[in-house]
């Protein structure tokens, strides 16, 4: 009995000590940062809750925010990675409110369920800027503004490029046989880009042979494309709703002994894609395996920085702020496209 009491005392001591030592680790790891925080006490504090680090696009997006909202520019950024969980993002926003940040920037993982916590931010008088995805809230006053991409416009640009390409190379609309590798169903990017394609198919009289979701991944893109190639013999255009799906489609096309390229009247299969944020995608444009990419600009940082500095001066931003986006192609037969009386130059990387 004595022995066991002795043992329990030892265990208790060990556990307490380990608790303390772990605590010390946190302290020492952060002491440097605490000092730098105090130094920049006059700066604007921003809490940024990011979705996670699931794709290249997302990482570039995060880096852009960190760079624009740096201490050198007079900001103190608190970055929080939500690890794809809404629950984590809700906790993060509540923490930001307690930390009395000046602004909250939120890249929501899903579009729903933000009413409660955004109302809490509003009650505390903290403006919320949304980036990338939108949120479904009844009260639009719950957020100050939204910064992101116009997915439908991206889709329209790529479709218009295809139309101009057909005109320039004297290809009849009825010879265009398209398959669509959709993104994750229900994602804003998928909805916008698919809508544009459907409108263009109706408008120009192309044939849309088939559609299936590739979940924005290379593996799924390859699988879907392989299925399409078995099912349809006359595919000559693939509309991939992001770069990764396009890489997968290229794999599948080459595995089937065909070639990805622009010469669609002579057996080549043309690949259209979106994002264009990685070097790999731009290289595929240069070597002609991807014919055209509608850029989805991940560099939201500068725009958010502008909005915040305007808000500081009392200038109210537009509710929806779209970032500028290019359209990439190595083909020289189309120089510009025009949509809604605005002309866009084709960028050759």
């Amino acid at each position: 009995m004595k022995k066991s009491i002795f043992l329990t005392i030892i265990i208790l001591t060990i556990s307490l000590l380990s608790g303390c030592s772990r605590a010390n680790e946190i302290t020492s790891a952060n002491s440097a940062e605490v000092i730098s925080d105090n130094k920049s006490s006059g700066s604007i504090t921003i809490g940024f809750s990011q979705v996670g680090a699931e794709s290249d696009w997302r990482n570039i997006n995060t880096e852009s925010m960190k760079k624009s909202l740096s201490a050198d520019n007079g900001y103190s950024l608190i970055y929080d990675d939500g690890q794809q969980k809404q629950q984590n993002q809700i906790i993060a926003i509540r923490t930001f409110i307690q930390k009395e940040v000046d602004y909250i920037v939120l890249a929501p993982v899903i579009e729903d369920g933000w009413n409660t916590v955004l109302a809490e931010a509003k009650d505390a008088g903290i403006p919320v800027i949304l980036v990338d995805r939108k949120v479904n809230v009844e009260d639009n006053e719950l957020f100050t503004c939204w910064v992101g991409s116009d997915f439908e416009l991206e889709g329209r640009k790529v479709c218009e490029w295809l139309n101009e390409y057909c005109k320039a190379n004297a290809i009849d609309a009825e010879n265009i046989n398209i398959v669509n590798i959709k993104g994750t169903e229900g994602a804003s990017a998928e909805l916008g880009r698919s809508r544009s394609l459907h409108k263009a198919v109706n408008k120009y009289g192309w044939n849309l042979l088939d559609e299936a979701s590739g979940d924005f991944t290379q593996a799924k893109g390859r699988e879907v494309m392989a299925g399409f190639l078995r099912k349809h013999k006359d595919i000559n255009v693939v509309y991939c709703e992001n770069d990764n799906e396009a890489f997968g489609a290229i794999d599948a096309i080459e595995a089937a002994g065909k070639k990805a390229g622009n010469d669609i009247m002579h057996g080549e299969i043309m690949i259209l894609a979106f994002d264009g944020s990685t070097e790999q995608a731009i290289n595929e444009i240069r070597n002609g395996r991807i014919s055209c990419i509608g850029e989805c600009n991940p560099l939201h940082g500068p725009r958010v920085e502008k909005i915040i500095s305007n808000l500081e001066k009392g200038i109210i931003p537009d509710k929806y702020e779209y970032v500028d986006e290019d359209i990439f192609s190595a083909d020289t037969s189309v120089k510009t496209i025009t949509l809604d009386d605005i002309s866009y130059n084709i960028v050759t990387p």
């Binding site: 380990s18 772990r22 952060n30 970055y79 990675d81 906790i91 930390k99």
Partner: peptide, 29 residues
């Protein structure tokens, strides 16, 4: 998780690692 989020500079994987350490401690006890 609150401490890590309040700190704002620690990676979000820290709560998991700390929980792992605590779990280990308790399982040993």
């Amino acid at each position: 998780s609150s401490i890590v989020k309040t700190n704002g500079k620690l990676a979000s994987s820290w709560p998991n690692i700390l929980t792992a350490a605590l779990l280990f401690l308790f399982i040993v006890i």
